[in-house]
């Protein structure tokens, strides 16, 4: 307990020198997510090529270069774009119909307690049921054609979207609700200006999950359809090429499926996420 004197300092008010140390160029390159991912893709393609060349069995496992060549020629001949366009068109129809039904169901569930019970019961029953398991039944009910496919697509989209949206609405904080009521908004304005943006993180998750379910279901349904009818989507393209033992083209078809998945997830959903929930700090 020696006597320590009080000391006083006056913090400098002049501008400081650079306190941050700039990253070197290597560290800055490594910080680019896109660059890191591209590097991984190139590496995977290299491994694929090397393995296929070592295996030397084009019927089982074609090389990366063969696949790309088949991909390019299928695009040039217009077969692949036509199949992809058919698939996308189908998907959009089914997705839109699923969303519309999900909106109705969620609205009913949010408005009444019996509606909420209905939604919860139906979701618990049907969410675990893979859509593709309904395809045989759909074929009996709607026949061969787009009707059956849209039916299974709706099943794939509806429950995921409705469940997430409903959970999102219920999670809107009581404070935000009271603020909305304080403004004396009309019922429609209250829903569109307060509840929907408030529940948007969950709604977006629902949209993403629904999209992924729909995409998988559609490709699978087209494979089955390929056996029974001639409607030509990507699944059918893959199935047909397998029958002709054009394995590089089968791989090219699969590649297209993957590319679309990546494209929609990274371009569309990522952009929407960055411009909305991330920007608003509702999701990190």
């Amino acid at each position: 307990m020696s006597d320590r004197p009080d000391v006083f300092f006056s913090p400098s008010t002049t501008t400081f020198d650079i306190v941050e140390k700039p990253l070197n160029s290597w560290a800055r390159l490594a910080n680019q997510t896109a660059l890191r991912k591209t590097f991984l893709l190139v590496l995977l393609a290299g491994i694929w090529e090397a393995y296929a060349r070592w295996l030397n069995n084009p019927l089982l496992f074609p090389t990366f270069t063969d696949t790309v060549a088949a991909f390019v020629s299928s695009i040039a001949s217009g077969e692949l774009p036509r199949a992809a366009a058919y698939t996308i068109q189908m998907l959009l129809k089914g997705y839109a119909a699923g969303l519309a039904l999900a909106a109705l169901l969620t609205a009913f569930a949010s408005a009444t307690r019996i509606g909420a019970d209905l939604l919860e019961t139906l979701t618990a029953m049907f969410n675990p049921l893979p859509s593709i398991a309904l395809l045989p039944l759909a074929l009996v009910w709607f026949g061969l054609g787009s009707g059956s496919i849209i039916f299974v697509l709706i099943h794939a989209v509806l429950w995921a979207v409705a469940l997430n949206a409903h959970a999102g609405f219920r999670a809107v904080s009581p404070t935000l609700r009271m603020v909305g009521q304080n403004y004396g908004l009309s019922r429609t304005a209250y829903i569109t200006r307060i509840l929907i943006p408030g529940a948007f993180p969950s709604i977006l998750t629902g949209l993403k999950v629904g999209w992924a379910f729909a995409w998988r279901t559609l490709i699978a349904a087209e494979l089955v359809f390929g056996v029974s009818s001639g409607s030509g989507g990507l699944g059918w393209y893959i199935f047909e090429r397998k029958n002709e033992l054009l394995i590089p083209s089968v791989f090219a078809g699969l590649l297209t499926v993957i590319l679309f998945g990546l494209l929609v997830d990274n371009l569309i959903f990522r952009t929407v996420e960055n411009r909305t929930v991330r920007r608003w700090g509702m999701q990190t």
């Binding site: 404070t175 935000l176 603020v179 304080n182 408030g198 948007f200 700090g281």
Partner: peptide, 14 residues
Amino acid sequence: RVFVFQEFDQLLPW
């Protein structure tokens, strides 16, 4: 009658 709440989440985050 405008409310000011205790909670910090009374501003619309969007």
